[in-house]
């Protein structure tokens, strides 16, 4: 007798547990407000990324096309993957001294692991992360970027 009661009890609890699960899923079926899908390419216009999002490394320039980089090479040293290469050049300043300035700041996006050490270690805050995250290109060579814009100069007041 007891075994029959247990048998019926098993069935009852089993069915109840299944119904509970069905209740959850069925309730979501009637609640389209809970949908979390992002329609990605369509929502590009109003898609706001978090400001700290590590999309890619950039070198901020101001309106006068000036950057902060003094080509000290610390970013290059602190990068674990060798994705940064700083190529300096030496120029003669107006007062006749030799000065080391930035020629090219090469950044290989394909090798970057976004650890953030370059940005953290930069003494002059010349580097930053932008939130641009769409990196797909058809040619691998396009992933090697020169961060300083052509004709850009060192900002006044930033010293070595």
């Amino acid at each position: 007798m007891r075994s029959i009661i247990n048998y019926l009890k098993d069935i009852f609890w089993g069915v109840m547990s299944l119904l509970k699960g069905l209740k959850v899923t069925a309730s979501y079926f009637w609640r389209p407000g809970a949908i979390v899908t992002e329609k990605y390419p369509e929502n590009r216009k109003y898609l706001v990324m978090f400001e700290r999002c590590k999309g890619e490394l950039i070198m901020p320039h101001n309106d006068k096309n000036e950057h902060n980089c003094i080509s000290c090479g610390i970013c290059q040293m602190s990068c674990p993957n060798g994705s940064i290469e700083v190529i300096p050049k030496t120029i003669d300043t107006e007062d006749g001294k030799k000065k080391r300035i930035l020629d090219k700041h090469i950044y290989r996006l394909g090798q970057c692991t976004f650890c953030g050490l370059c940005v953290k270690n930069c003494p002059t805050h010349a580097l930053a992360f932008s939130t641009k995250f769409e990196h797909a290109v058809f040619n691998k060579a396009l992933l090697i970027k020169v961060l300083n814009k052509p004709g850009s100069q060192l900002k006044k007041g930033v010293e070595q």
């Binding site: 899923t25 069925a26 809970a34 899908t37």
Partner: peptide, 13 residues
Amino acid sequence: KVCAFVQNRLGPN
């Protein structure tokens, strides 16, 4: 569509 709505998705769109 049913599975998408159950799973908080949009499904084919």
